[in-house]
Design a protein around this nucleic acid. Structure first.
Lengths: 214, 214, 214, 214
DNA sequence: CATGAATGAGCTTTCATTCAT
DNA sequence: GATGAATGAAAGCTCATTCAT
């Protein structure tokens, strides 16, 4: 990309970098417009207008409307999945430690949803409006998150603090289902901060204690 | 369905009945086309073609395309919610009984999803594509299901077999999130029957035992 | 109309008479609907509903929508032209007599417009909406009225009380233009009765005296 | 048009000017298509085809079909009314002068109708086909022309050469009725030039002399 | 590189007309 | 005769995409 290994602070950007930065700008506009109007009712003209560019310009950076949505969704899913993979599965040695770890992951997810509401809209609502293939991408991402979650369970079984005869993948998927149901509700809540706190607590409690009185 | 000839077998249908039956036919075609192409890419012509009618005919029975989606969704939500409300919340007196009841509800839901796959498509995918108002209807239905589920929890607390300091509504919502995540996966599975069985078991286990080894 | 043995009072109507009477009913409904909505926005269903019949029935009596308009217009033009031809052109021997005759014709026209407002709507507005051929029929009718009016002028010239070097047809057309401009305004007036009186006076005055002070 | 190079011959048009010129082109096509087929049977595709453009292009310049008709009619009415308001009402001091003035106005109107036949079609036929509101605009324009005409009469009464006890507004309306009846007939005539000359003469004669022999 | 004028495929919707009952 | 369910031609309109400037 350049001749020197470091990045000079105020260096002129290379052509490829400029292109990437422009794609980012477009994606930022697009995510906002998609979140507000949905994919089909969002027009290229609106996206272009939001970033103060001519709508023809969009086509210099993306082949078509679908490609924008694809780019936007990929970015969003990466952000989302980083939250889960930030915590190393092998770090917990006791149920208590895993409980804390789970609470941290939950809170991190809800913080992300709160700080970037459009990201939630895109993942929860917009992707499904594009076509079945993009819906499938979201489901794939959910599978990856479930797999990541499964790793924590397997680690716990290995270390003896998790019930060994769990159906680990389905249980992980169920946990992801709960957590994302919480994410949806945090996304829509009035007091998002409090809602996030309480959902994190609810999910952890259900996971670790079940609902039966002792 | 009945042992007695209560209904005259081949009676001519009244005008109103004919209209309702025709609306049903259209809804059946529409649900299939919506499920395959999504709401926006489904054309009235396709829906009409699927039932072997002229596309103008559709407009004798529905005011416009949205009205079809509304009818289809309402029907689907009613079906879905009947499953949950079929079991009376006060019927269970012990954790064991409630555990069985929960398993029954889960299996009934998965059976429904399996026997009418398009119904799942409509609720999970199509409704959100129409407009925000119809997305809201689905969320409202989810709230109702969560409220119904909450009733079971409150009954259990009253009778002493459910942990009394649960956040009942959020816990109910989390359970619903799990169950519907299962429904989604059953909907997409190859061996739906087996998948349904295992999801019912997984959900029940997580709810009642938690994940921690004893 | 009766009293004489021409028609038996309560005789059953012949098939042809029944057909004609039904066509009349349809025309009555049609004229009202055309007057309210215009030709294009009037639907066959509305016309049928107004007379309490099924819309398929209309097609037993008229080939198509245009045929209804044609029938309605013909009836209206006949009514309109009778007013003018009711007064015999040779009856006036002096300017004074012709002045009175003109006033009578004007008042009769305005009375007709007042008593059957839809008739005015059809002739002035609806006919032009159908197609150019029906617009032409109205123009033809205007020509006939102008010709009839010309006869009065020719009679006056012959008898010496009308200026002999008039361009009789164009003058007659101009008079018809005035009178129908009055008809349009009577049609739209609040106090139609008074408006008709004053228009009759205005037209007569302009025709016979001109506008120049003596 | 001018002997001096006041305007730079091939100057690039501003965006706003281009837009206005394009609207003009569309209006020109539309007026021709409306005149030939009537408003309802004129399709956007025909209008676009007539100017060699795609039909989508029309919608860059007008919101919808009705807006085109509105623009076309407004342009036509402005042209028409300029003819009448070009002559100052106070200019005539004698009946003879007013007679000449009237003849000039009549001829100017007939010249306009002859040089732009579609303009007559739009005002006389098309406007009434759009909806009642546009019909009302034409009637309003007729009222304005009648009011303008009334001014000439009032000027004549003041100066003593017009009969003082005229019903001035209705008389003016009657005159306008005559003149436009002439316009209609000139519009439809074979030899429009001659027809215009003779109508101007006929109207003036009727107005100033009446029809009675002296 | 950026722009926005131009395009037309393809949709929803209306309603005159047909015809089996 | 009367009916109204069914039909499909035909139109207005939107907007992703192209491309000359």
């Amino acid at each position: 990309m350049s001749g020197k290994p470091a990045k000079k602070p105020a260096r002129r950007l290379s052509a490829a970098e400029l292109t990437e930065s422009r794609r980012g700008e477009i994606a930022d506009s697009a995510i906002a417009v998609f979140a507000e109007h949905g994919y089909r009712d969002a027009s290229i003209a609106q996206i272009a207008a939001k970033m103060g560019a001519g709508h023809g310009t969009i086509y210099r950076y993306f082949d078509n409307k679908r490609a924008i949505a694809e780019y936007v969704l990929r970015r969003a899913l990466i952000r989302l999945m980083q939250v889960v993979t930030d915590e190393p599965p092998e770090a917990s040695d006791t149920a208590e430690q895993y409980r804390d770890q789970t609470a941290r992951i939950g809170r991190a997810l809800y913080d992300l949803i709160i700080s970037e509401p459009d990201l939630g809209s895109v993942v929860f609502f917009v992707a499904g409006q594009v076509d079945s293939e993009m819906g499938a991408q979201v489901r794939l991402a959910f599978d990856l998150v479930a797999s990541a979650t499964e790793k924590y369970l397997l680690n716990g079984i290995e270390k003896g603090y998790i019930e060994p005869d769990l159906d680990t993948f389905r249980t992980a998927s169920a946990i992801v289902g709960m957590i994302f149901e919480g994410a949806r509700r945090v996304h829509l809540a009035d007091d998002q901060r409090a809602e996030g706190e309480q959902w994190a607590a609810t999910v952890v409690k259900l996971m670790f204690d079940g609902i039966v009185a002792k």
